[in-house]
Design a protein around this nucleic acid. Structure first.
Length: 893
RNA sequence: GGGCAAGUGGCGGAAUGGUAUACGCGGUAGUCUCAAAAACUACUGCUCGCUUGAGCGUGUGGGUUCGACUCCCUCCUUGCCCACCA
């Protein structure tokens, strides 16, 4: 047999070219009748090229898109690159190239690979987040949010990565377990106690795994918390994978609790938030965070207290200090608070297990009913008062029970009576109901180079003007760049390395609204960039040098796809070294307004949004998907979008692993799709990826498996070639194949709707086996429908086969624009029914009946009881007979 | 510690109250061939048995049911996400 591999690639290239010429994957965005926006998460272009995990995700999304297209939809399936951001920048740093130069190389390589994977991408509508024509709108969104009061710069304790030299959003800090002195687990697994004791957790940077530090820095925030309730509530109106909905709900973390106030010697009352007001009488101490604001106003703290606060504020130090581990540490402040109910003096402690950015930064210590407070009380010998009955000695009891030791509340039940207790507290004016969230504001500024510059100008003169919004500092110092000046071009600079933290006092460029520490972005070295006229007073201003978080880039890219043909700088002519000379400024406000007009108000364009189907990884459950929802809601409120949920339907795919383990560079088991495409062909790779497991659960990539798939496609190829060689006069219909065909169409159609690709392929294989079993010439319909069912998975082969069966070779009609096959329900009904004969629920025989026979219980019973195999197990007459038509008959003896 | 998945042959996995192991991989034997590859055919959960056949079998232990991989409860294990969230 001839070597068919190069031929496969040849065929793939041939059809790629034809499809491109005939524009079969380019819907008419203005006049489409049934718009269907089939979106997949665009990749960040890493230098290594496309990962087979990307191919897995994209193929799964494309199969759905192709299925929808064949079902009469005008499917729009765009792709682009999420090229801005730390990931690309770090790689550029590593190899000593400017990220802008590297971006051009990666872009070329990625688009080359993305063109090979057989997806029905519309190549006329790509976006790249680092394209000035793209980030112009990223900046525009920033401005719109700023003007709406949804963006502000403020000082806050933030996560600082000393290696990447930038701040990180909370979501970008991952908790890493570090096992030290690891004791190998015994086969029985009894030594897990030992492992736990040696475990240490710390927050590390998601990119470089360096332990993060907490710093007080000036940063830009988006007020996503203002949308917390809507982000939670609107989860009800979208059709998303349940686990992603759950993840978002947990991340928003809405909790109803009680706010309680304790008078204290520290100068001001201490407010605490609790979900357990029923344990109020059990409070024996108060703990506040080292960051608690009350501490800055207290003058005479002892030295050891000040020392503790200092130490606790450096979490990097904690990570280094092995003795600290998970054990709670704290220090007595030297001051007391008063319990509002008993009037008792209770000590105020300072401890780093209390988080400043959740609740109020202070908690009431109830050691009897909270394990953390219990640990703390044990260590520092604080009193423990039990107020809920039912607990055990020696541990905190967090369960339900009768309330005790609580004067008027004695005899009430926890947790049922908590609402009653809240009422009681509210009436007495001691506490109030309060909703608290886990979600925090989105930190969007980064002290890095490779991102969209934040389009703001600081003006010293205007800073002295009173602010209408009443900000604490800065007055009207921050002025928005006028929209007609967008984009604020990211200049090409030689030294783009992160600079880290500097002290404003020593820097010559010091014009910051406040003194003290600040992260310094690489752009601060470019004096030309910084110089700017104040948009408000026309005086000397200074540009913001921080850039946007890359999650802002990706929070709106799907809005850009349908209008990316509005670019006025064609992609190949991009000139990074001197971009300003290439980009004409928009002439009027109307030109900028186009975007708004086209996305928000044009009926034609609006039809493409919100996105009909979005497929991507579950790892973006909280980051990207939550931010995108927030941006959509903000733009909706501002009147720019006609919808406030960006993705009507979202499905998460599973994780692709290799030989039982996660693919990673360190394991050296990352699969490069290029080699597999070269060796087996795109169709074999695609079909295998879709076959190796349930798409929503992922699966295990094995080389042996893809060989089997290549074999399958060759079997089909031989079948079709053999049949076309037979001539048309001998073709015939076979009743059993009619049935198989109709049944297969039904099963595959159902499976594709539910993204059950692995079983869809299994059904196609069964059908193929039946066709091959039949040696005679087959009716063309059997083959054509087989090709249609395979088309979403194996687009190249399918086109080849379909064209070879086509009578009219003069005009090209792509199989991918052909109507999806329909099945005849009448032709699915089997004329032979196989029934299991059971005795006491155990199958003892299997009998065949005609469909008519199987409907008669008496007849089935008679034949079943006549069976020798059944008789052997039936001591006596059956006490009971269960008959399920067409399935089983069960005799109970 | 919390949340969410999941645990089925030698392997990837089917089956969501009614024939457990579809489909594929791997394996064994055979056909073809000088030979190999490819292709094709048959067999392939375990144990006992010459066979007819019998028993066992979906992580563990219980429950519901005529009947449970499937539903309920207990425990164990693995993966993913989150985590000193008061």
């Amino acid at each position: 047999m001839k070597n068919s591999k190069p031929k496969t690639r040849e065929m793939e290239e041939k059809w790629t070219k034809v499809w491109e010429e005939k524009k079969i994957y380019q819907p008419d965005l203005k006049n489409a009748k049934n718009p269907f926006f089939n979106l997949m998460m665009f990749p960040y272009p890493s230098a290594e090229g496309l990962h087979v995990g990307n191919v897995y995700a994209f193929t799964g999304a494309d199969v759905y898109g192709r299925f929808m297209r064949m079902n009469g939809n005008d499917v729009f399936e765009p792709i682009g690159l999420d090229g801005f951001g730390i990931h690309s920048e770090n790689y550029a740093l590593k190899i000593g190239k400017n990220p802008a130069d590297q971006a051009k190389i990666s872009e070329k390589n990625f688009y080359r690979q993305l063109k090979m994977i057989g997806n029905s991408f519309d190549w006329a509508h790509t976006v790249e987040t680092y394209d000035p024509e793209y980030y112009k709108w990223t900046q525009w969104i920033f401005l719109k949010l700023f003007k709406a009061g949804l963006a502000e710069k403020r000082k806050a304790p933030v996560n600082w990565c000393p290696s990447c030299k930038t701040v990180l959003a909370d979501e970008q800090v991952i908790q890493k377990s570090k096992i030290k002195n690891k004791i190998p687990a015994s086969p029985a697994g009894r030594s897990n106690l030992g492992d736990e004791e040696n475990e240490e957790r710390m927050g590390v940077c998601e990119r470089c795994e360096t332990p993060v530090e907490i710093k007080d820095l000036e940063q830009w925030f988006f007020k996503i918390t203002a949308f917390a309730d809507r982000l939670l509530e609107d989860l009800k109106k979208i059709d998303w994978s349940e686990k992603v909905i759950t993840a978002q709900r947990n991340w928003i973390g809405r909790k109803t609790g009680t706010m309680l106030s304790f008078e204290s010697e520290l100068g001001s009352p201490i407010e605490v938030f609790t979900t357990r007001p029923d344990t109020f009488h059990g409070v024996t101490f108060i703990v506040i965070s080292p960051y608690h604001p009350v501490l800055s106003s207290v003058k005479n703290l002892e030295n050891d207290v000040l020392e503790y606060i200092e130490k606790a504020k450096s979490s990097a130090e904690k990570a280094k200090d092995k003795t600290l581990k998970d054990e709670k540490t704290g220090v007595f402040s030297g001051y007391f608070a008063t319990h509002p109910l008993s009037g008792n003096k209770i000590p105020v402690w300072i401890a780093d297990y209390v988080l400043m950015d959740y609740g109020t930064g202070a908690v009431m210590g109830v050691p009897a009913h909270d394990s953390r407070d219990f640990d703390f009380a044990k260590k520092y010998d604080l009193p423990i008062v039990s107020v809920i009955g039912g607990g055990k000695e020696g541990e905190a009891y967090e369960g339900s029970g009768e309330i005790i030791n609580s004067s008027e509340w004695n005899g009430w039940e926890s947790p049922q009576d908590i609402p009653k207790i809240i009422d009681w507290l509210e009436k007495k004016g001691i506490g109030s109901k309060k909703v608290s969230y886990h979600l925090r504001d989105w930190l969007i500024s980064r002290q890095r180079y490779w991102g969209a510059p934040i389009p703001m100008i600081f003006c010293d003169k205007c800073a002295r003007l009173p602010s209408s919004r009443g900000e604490a500092s800065g007055g009207q110092g921050w002025q928005a760049v006028p929209e007609e000046d967008l984009p604020v071009i990211l200049p090409y600079i030689k030294n783009f390395k992160p600079l880290g933290i500097h002290s404003r006092h020593s820097a010559e460029l010091s014009r910051s609204p406040s003194s003290g520490q600040a992260g310094e972005a690489p752009l601060s070295q470019d004096k030309q960039f910084i110089e700017a006229k104040c948009p408000n007073c026309g005086g000397v201003g200074r540009r913001e040098t921080d850039v946007c978080d890359t999650f802002l880039d990706s929070s709106w890219y799907f809005l850009r796809y349908p209008v990316s043909d509005f670019k006025y700088i064609p992609f190949p002519s991009k000139n990074w070294e001197n971009p300003k000379s290439q980009i004409p400024k928009p002439k009027t406000d109307r030109e900028i307004g186009n975007w708004k007009l086209e996305i928000g108000n044009s009926a034609q364009r609006a039809a493409w949004l919100p996105v009909h189907m979005y497929i991507g990884g579950a790892e973006h459950s909280v980051l990207h998907l939550l931010y995108s929802r927030f941006i959509a809601k903000a733009l909706f409120d501002l009147g720019f979008l006609a919808f406030d949920e960006p993705f009507s339907k979202f499905r998460a795919h599973g994780l692709l692993i290799k030989d039982g383990g996660k693919m990673s560079k360190s394991r050296g088991n990352v699969v490069n799709p290029d080699q597999y495409i070269e060796r087996f062909g795109t169709d074999a790779l695609r079909t295998y990826l879709m076959f190796l497991g349930p798409f929503d659960q992922g699966g295990d990539f094995r080389d042996a498996g893809i060989e089997g798939m290549e074999r399958f496609l060759r079997r089909v190829d031989r079948l079709i070639n053999y049949q076309t060689g037979l001539g048309s006069d001998k073709k015939k219909q076979i009743p059993s194949l009619d049935q198989a065909m109709n049944k297969t169409i039904r099963e595959v159609t159902d499976d594709l709707q539910g993204l059950r690709y692995n079983t869809a392929i299994a059904h196609i294989m069964e059908y193929v086996n039946e066709l091959i079993r039949e040696k005679s010439a087959l009716d063309e319909e059997y083959l054509k429908n087989l090709i249609f069912l395979l088309a979403p998975f194996a687009p190249f082969y399918s086109e080849e086969w379909f064209q070879s069966l086509s009578e009219d070779k003069s005009t090209f009609n792509s199989v991918h624009l052909h109507k999806w096959p329909e099945y005849d329900p009448e032709n699915i009904i089997e004329d032979i029914v196989i029934m299991a004969i059971q005795v006491n629920g155990k199958t003892r025989d299997i009998l065949e009946f005609t469909t008519a026979e199987s409907k008669s219980e008496a007849l089935v019973k008679e034949r079943a009881l006549a069976s020798e195999k059944v008789k052997r197990h039936m001591g006596s007459e059956p006490k009971k007979v269960i008959y399920v038509e067409g399935k089983i008959i069960n005799f109970v003896v």
